[in-house]
Simulated scan of single mutants.
Amino acid sequence: MRGLQDRGIVVTGAAGGIGAAVVERLVTEGAKVVAVDLVAPELDGVVAARAVDVTDEDSVAAAFAEVGELMGGIDGLVAAAGIQASGPTHELELDTFRKVLDVSVIGTFLCVKHAVPAMLERGDGRIVTFGSTAAVCAAPELTSYASAKGAVLQLTRSVAVEYAARGIRANCLCPGGTMTPMMRAIDERRTGPDHFRERHPIGRYAEPAEIASAAAFLLSDDSSFVVGAALMVDGGYSCA
């Protein structure tokens, strides 16, 4: 894709199935990638890997300052870090609800906050946050996750309209079910029908590489007029 060669891009949640696939795709496209997770991920082709707690501003600020110097600036951010919890709303522990929001919403906010100044200096930047079908479609027992992803989508839209005229494009990528290692393990243990998979009109889950392709598109020059979008990469789930 156009415009990714030698771009300095930070990817959070890089140890996860989707995050690692994003890193791999960007490295293939010739980008300079710093991979970030709670434990520094071991991935090929990256400029550096760093252990960062995205819910801790000191940790984020220090890492992004170092990354900016290491890469000569920050051209792009993929904020893929997030966690999920499920269960009946009336049984959900407050600490669990708060933790899900902390990682997805506070983590995304802090990474955007500390990436934007470097982008403003260059007059150019691309931000990809991670929502979900849960950001736009209701589902039972996903109160904390849906709340977090809905907030990430609105955060992204706000950032998009605030900085678009200053050369920064922000968009929210919303995947459907994706065959990550965690999903594969669940699939292997399943004894009955997979009703979540059945709700995807395409008839299957995404592979992480398919989600990574959409992230690469949003970071590239090929998406130059895409601003503040909720890009549904969900096999038709959200419109079924």
Rank of each mutant, 00 (worst) to 15 (best):
1 M>F: 13
1 M>V: 12
2 R>F: 12
2 R>P: 13
7 R>N: 09
11 V>I: 05
13 G>E: 01
13 G>A: 01
13 G>V: 02
15 A>R: 05
17 G>Q: 01
18 I>Y: 04
23 V>W: 01
23 V>T: 02
24 E>F: 03
25 R>Y: 00
26 L>D: 13
27 V>K: 01
30 G>S: 14
31 A>M: 01
36 V>T: 02
38 L>H: 12
39 V>S: 13
46 V>R: 02
46 V>S: 02
47 V>A: 08
47 V>S: 10
47 V>L: 05
50 R>S: 05
53 D>G: 03
56 D>N: 15
59 S>W: 09
59 S>R: 07
66 E>M: 11
68 G>M: 06
72 G>P: 06
72 G>E: 13
73 G>N: 08
75 D>G: 14
75 D>R: 15
78 V>A: 09
78 V>G: 09
80 A>Q: 10
80 A>E: 08
84 Q>A: 13
87 G>H: 00
89 T>G: 10
91 E>S: 12
92 L>D: 04
94 L>W: 14
100 V>E: 07
102 D>V: 09
103 V>F: 01
107 G>M: 08
107 G>F: 12
107 G>V: 14
109 F>V: 06
111 C>I: 04
111 C>W: 05
114 H>C: 09
115 A>I: 02
115 A>R: 02
115 A>M: 01
116 V>S: 05
121 E>P: 02
121 E>L: 09
123 G>H: 07
124 D>W: 15
125 G>F: 09
125 G>P: 06
127 I>H: 11
127 I>S: 12
127 I>Q: 15
131 G>R: 14
132 S>T: 11
134 A>P: 12
135 A>M: 12
141 E>K: 05
141 E>D: 15
141 E>G: 02
143 T>D: 03
144 S>D: 11
144 S>Y: 06
147 S>V: 04
148 A>K: 03
149 K>H: 10
152 V>E: 15
155 L>Q: 11
155 L>Y: 10
155 L>C: 04
159 V>Q: 06
160 A>G: 08
161 V>G: 06
161 V>Y: 09
165 A>L: 12
165 A>S: 14
165 A>F: 08
166 R>Q: 15
166 R>A: 13
168 I>A: 01
169 R>T: 11
170 A>I: 08
172 C>R: 02
173 L>P: 01
175 P>C: 14
175 P>D: 04
175 P>E: 09
180 T>A: 11
180 T>W: 11
182 M>L: 14
185 A>L: 13
186 I>P: 07
186 I>S: 14
189 R>F: 13
193 P>M: 04
194 D>Q: 03
194 D>R: 01
197 R>V: 12
200 H>W: 04
201 P>K: 15
202 I>R: 09
202 I>K: 05
205 Y>D: 12
208 P>D: 08
210 E>W: 04
214 A>F: 05
215 A>V: 09
217 F>R: 00
219 L>N: 06
220 S>W: 00
224 S>H: 11
224 S>L: 00
226 V>K: 03
228 G>E: 11
229 A>K: 00
230 A>P: 13
230 A>I: 07
230 A>F: 06
230 A>Y: 08
232 M>L: 14
233 V>Y: 01
234 D>K: 04
237 Y>E: 10
237 Y>H: 14
238 S>I: 00
240 A>D: 09
